[in-house]
Design a protein around this nucleic acid. Structure first.
Lengths: 182, 182
DNA sequence: GTCTATAGAGCGATAGAC
DNA sequence: GTCTATCGCTCTATAGAC
């Protein structure tokens, strides 16, 4: 049953987000679902499989609406992160885990790729209407901008998670400055 | 003995960098040092203490020389990371762990703070010679620039660790562009 | 300061009944 | 599909001799 699977994943994700992937034990997760070991292992063959399912977060909130200006889109993403500190923490935990668990690395690569594609789409739409670039100039420009936006995004996650005196508003200011220049 | 302590820390760090903090076991570390459990626990009272000692990396390679231009300094830091992929990985692992282990969070905060201080110092030196800003304008400008540089730095670590198709040269290009503008 | 040996707890995963 | 019970292993940390 597909629904039971998502129930388990959601419970597991919230424990991974609180304690970390390794520190959250299967027993805790099992207890938190209200099910039993046998039930969980009927849906997931190992803890690693459950981990990578939990890492695959729904990114719909980070999709551009069709009439958004590129920098408004990026700022909206950042503010989304700011209001959901648990999600930000979970990204940081997941990206760190990706360095040692290949199954999670694959998910992170896929998800940052999705984010990148969306960034490129919204900037392309804008650039085609407003800028006068040749085809290859445009592609180079988009590549660089995607690196910039991903950097702003990952930078926000890392700094807001790791720095005691992080100032989000100053960070937005910096992001706005670099993303408007084109 | 202080020297024995550093020996142990170095061995532990290389195992943490390879497998992650939780996945590297005390037994592995003990075996790799060639010592015994008793010897290690004579120098460190717990695995967590050893972890936070290992997290405190020597950052001298990321210090500005007194005649460097700010963007040259930043680019040199990035190229330093590029040539030492094990260190980059280790940063990613450590920052992720910081989200769940307070003792590591304290070290990361301290180290990113150090990096920030150095960035500010080198930009301040340059700005005082080349720009004409009032005192408070200068401080605001430096704050924003520090956020930018930290973002470029953490972004490089995350993206080069997590993205399969990461293009370092394009990243440098983006970094150069935003850090020259002032 | 370092050794050997082991305590004591918790882990991920499985077997087999229902 | 879910349960109970438990296997077999590994983990961090300590005790006590030297």
């Amino acid at each position: 049953m597909q629904n039971r699977r998502s129930e388990i994943v959601e419970v597991a994700r919230s424990l991974f987000a609180r304690s970390g992937y390794q520190q959250a034990s299967m027993s805790e997760i099992i207890a938190a679902t209200g099910l039993s070991a046998g039930a969980i292992y009927n849906h997931f063959s190992s803890k690693t499989e459950l981990m990578s399912a939990a890492a695959r977060v729904n990114l719909d909130r980070f999709t551009a609406s069709s009439d958004e200006l590129p920098w408004d889109f990026v700022e909206r993403c950042l503010r989304e992160l700011q209001t959901d500190h648990q999600l930000t923490r979970f990204f940081a935990i997941t990206w760190g885990e990706a360095a040692t668990v290949p199954e999670i690395a694959a998910v992170v690569d896929e998800q940052l790729g999705q984010l990148r594609d969306r960034v490129i789409a919204v900037y392309r739409r804008w650039a085609e209407a407003e800028l006068d670039l040749t085809g290859s100039e445009l592609e180079t420009w988009l590549d660089m901008l995607a690196a910039a936006v991903l950097s702003v995004f990952t930078g926000f996650v890392m700094q807001s998670t790791a720095l005691a005196n992080f100032d989000a508003e100053r960070y937005f200011e910096f992001a706005r400055t670099i993303l408007r220049q084109g």
